[in-house]
Design a protein around this nucleic acid. Structure first.
Lengths: 98, 98
DNA sequence: CTCAATAAATAGGGAGTCTACATATAGACA
DNA sequence: TGTCTATATGTAGACTCCCTATTTATTGAG
């Protein structure tokens, strides 16, 4: 989750609702993350210093827009690397060729 | 975990300790799963009918050897497929090309 | 004027992983 | 003989995290 959230706000800051939609679109519908997962996770990442949240108002609706910090950018790089070695490890076990 | 455990006993039945070693070897040391994870998971998979456990004695040591059932083989196929689509989905979000 | 979409958030449940600990035997080595 | 390492299984409790369900509120369509 952390990697997904950090990755989706990498290019441009987004608010929670938009993040959920972006996740769904980028994954072609495969990733449909509930609000009960995303909102607490965003706060967690903000507490960790990886995201910086800021309130904004657009069309009468309040939004909390999250921006990737430098620290978050470093964390994302780590997450990507960890994800890669993780899938490699799992793959080497799951792959029926062995 | 379920997929890993089912996969490792696919070719031949193994007992818990050997499963942990096999996981470590197959993943080149990347997967070092603690006993507190493996033993409960094996019992869970046995309760689910995916593994069949049987006690044996080898060199004075008691071993519970687990064999993949037909149901477990089907579950493993499902896990492999799920893992594949899961990594594809995550990859499509994590991949910086988008 | 009601419903769908937009927007955020939390409480509580549940599942699973990990740390630590407990138990026990076999074999190596001093 | 005694100790240590490897082999072998297991549980209790903490911890984290994800999900379901619910609440609140606004905008715009029908």
């Amino acid at each position: 989750m952390d990697a997904l959230l950090l990755s989706v706000v990498e290019r441009e800051p987004l608010h929670g609702y938009a993040i959920i939609e972006a996740l769904r679109e980028r994954s072609d519908g495969a990733l449909d993350v509930p609000t009960g997962t995303v909102y607490p996770a965003l706060r967690r990442l903000e507490r960790a210093g990886y995201l910086a949240g800021e309130w904004a108002v657009a069309g009468g609706r309040k939004r909390r827009t999250y921006r990737l910090t430098d620290s978050g950018r470093a964390a994302l790089a780590g997450e990507r690397s960890a994800w890669k070695s993780f899938t490699t490890a799992i793959g080497s076990v799951l792959d029926p060729s062995r």
